[in-house]
Design a protein around this nucleic acid. Sequence first.
DNA 1: AAGACGAAAGTGGTTGA
DNA 2: TCAACAACTTTCGTCTT
Length: 324
Amino acid sequence: MGQMHGSPAGKGTPPQNSQEPSTCPECGSTSVVEDATRGERVCGGCGLVLSDHRIDTGAEWRAFSSEESDARSRVGAPLRYTVHDKGLTTVIDWRDRDTAGRKLTPTRRSEIYRLRRWQIRSRVHSSMDRNLAQAMSELERLSSQLGIPKQIRELAALLYRKSILQKLVRGRSIEAMVAATLYAACRIRSKPRPLDEVADTSRVDKKKLGQCYRLLLRSLEIKIPLSNPVDYISRFASELSLSSPVQLRTVEILNQSRDMGLTIGRDPLGLAAAAIYVASIMMDERRTQREIAEVARVTEVTVRNRYKEIVRVLGIDSMTLSAQ
DNA sequence: AAGACGAAAGTGGTTGA
DNA sequence: TCAACAACTTTCGTCTT
């Protein structure tokens, strides 16, 4: 029982993994600030929240041999935010026995009854928990329909908890707030989904969703940079059955366009769509403007306008495009 | 006939007085 | 709070492949 504490890496040195860079992936700034009171790491340059609610997932014990390491394991399911009580449920049994199976004394027994009542009250009758329970099932439904990975779901759940504490849900629909947190979570993790897509699958109208999203950013003081068109490419390309060379070409085009200052003030979705259009022609896997516009959820007109600009600024002439 | 083009008017959000 | 504004959408007639 002697050596239960102290992480392997030593005190005050959090485990380093790829998810916790000391430079910001968005703006490249090295001024990443630790906000210990909130358990968040925030980029000093652009304000991007790099990680929040840090949990040392390493072992809290030390193992001196592999046998020892195998023998010791953590107890219980990992902490999860998508379960409305964080998965930390203690159930008081209905049997009037203690853990050894002995009958309880009358005093002890009435005490247990009292605890049991409390448990039921605090779990079921608290309005916050009821809200959460409903929200989490909606989150579950939405994410599985959109194919959102568990990690991002958990982040969305965390954001939702925060927005409940800030009383943001009051007077708004749970569905809308859930959708907004999920949309935000996707963007934070650089796996953005078009707002339209989230709105459609959640039956929340686009305007409401946008409002909730902006409220979320303001109230929780989160800064999320504009989404990068590149983050859309692999998804769009697979929906259009485009090969990976086309994807690479698309990314090149996007990077060049950015360097030419073509991307400022432009809808990232439109840029992604146009770049795919150009690349698909160059690589001889042409897709129509309409097909691309559909998956990117922009209009053909936007695809056209962006694509015209790209061709003009990058000096791609019609010969390059029409060369078969 | 389908796809591409571009003009014109409408929409929702941002900005700045 | 309001008007100007930029980007995007909708709609539609015309040209191109």
